[in-house]
Design a binder for these strands. Structure first.
Lengths: 214, 214
DNA sequence: TGTACATCAGTGAACGCGCGTTCACTGATGTAC
DNA sequence: TGTACATCAGTGAACGCGCGTTCACTGATGTAC
């Protein structure tokens, strides 16, 4: 609330503060619509017009926090994959981290895959056109497709190790993603539904859809 | 646009007209937020206050079109089930109808399972508390849980016919629902993703999760 | 060391917009006599 | 058959709100001389 003016040359700090404020708003409200320019300003403790030297418009703020959420998400998943040893364990660890992220930080998960990409500021950075086969499998995936690329890579690792009978890792990765997303989404939207045990479901999804023998 | 005033005693027609207008708005805009009271009035060709004799507030309109969408959805699924013969075929037909509904009428599907129930007018009618095990399995399911109940019943039919090895039809139905929803949701949100063939995926989901031998 | 000045961080007031909702009303329609 | 009147469908103007965005500004801070 109370904020002391930045010193000269340090005006850029307000950008980081604004992003932090926007992040807090998402966390508190659970609704990306709550991230209004004025709400961010209130959260940070500045006047609304002060945002403009740092963001072109409201869409630019949304875009930045979505990227921020993706970075967080990617970090959680790649950390889980790295900690596991062996291709099958890595695949499962990545998928488990996916569900854990959605369960632990539901309001950030909303930003990732529960918003219409058309609502984003810069359409060119949207998930829709960026997730084409070539890009997702390429060497330097964009931040919004990085984890999907990691999933494909994990499944390819299982195939190379002779532990998966999959003949199309891209297709089967998409199937796994769809199932994870359905579980994550409905968990977020309907938290009081008597859901089955996460680990048991995860086993069926991963091993079944990746064609891995139990 | 141009509308002639209803005759005396027929003022109630405006309620139906308003609902039709709200439905058209959802279909056009794809965003439930676009269904504002004033937009409905514009669509119908009346002034905004004229809505009030027929709906308590904006939330009541939203609630009504959500119920309308559920009735549509339930009708599509039960029709598909009735047309199929044999428990396994019925189960699969119901699931296929689920995906078909989401693909053909994406903006209505948004109303069903892609909105936060907290955004609805009357919290008591929300899906969250209504979908408890007892209600969903009961004899007269509410409109918003009817199709889930039909899914459970279909799976029970498969078990009784000795064609499913499932030991917990409620749990396995939830798993199927989750998978269907994930596929439907991401299709709606990311229509340009190179999705796998719907029928092949459906087979794997239904037979795999319902424990039916192919 | 002191002072004038440019720069920079941030403000306050205002704009037009669309929203949900309220209120007093208008004027056509049917009915009672 | 004609007329007064109650009822009903629907309106127009207004309210306060929060929003994104623009604009002219203020006042502290650092720097040049």
């Amino acid at each position: 609330m109370v904020r002391t003016r930045n010193r000269r040359g340090e005006g850029g700090k307000l950008r980081a503060d604004s992003l932090a404020g926007a992040r807090e708003l998402v966390e508190q409200a659970g609704d990306p619509e709550a991230v209004t320019l004025r709400a961010v300003a209130r959260q940070v403790g500045i006047s609304a017009p002060s945002i403009y030297p740092h963001f072109a418009d409201r869409a630019a703020i949304m875009d930045a926090i979505v990227d921020d959420a993706f970075a967080d998400f990617n970090g959680a998943i790649s950390a889980a994959i790295e900690q596991a040893s062996g291709p099958v364990a890595q695949l499962r660890a990545g998928c488990a981290a996916y569900l854990r992220f959605a369960a632990d930080r539901p309001n950030r998960y909303r930003l990732l895959f529960m918003r219409d990409p058309r609502a984003t500021g810069d359409p060119a950075r949207d998930l829709v056109p960026a997730v084409g086969k070539e890009l997702a499998l390429g060497p330097a995936p964009a931040i919004r497709t990085q984890s999907f690329a990691a999933l494909v890579k994990s499944l390819q690792g299982c195939i190379e190790a002779g532990q998966s009978a999959s003949t199309d890792p891209y297709l089967d990765s998409a199937a796994i993603w769809v199932a994870l997303h359905g579980y994550a989404t409905l968990h977020v939207l309907l938290p009081f539904f008597p859901w089955p045990d996460t680990d048991a479901l995860l086993d069926r999804l991963v091993y079944g859809l990746a064609r891995i023998a139990a």
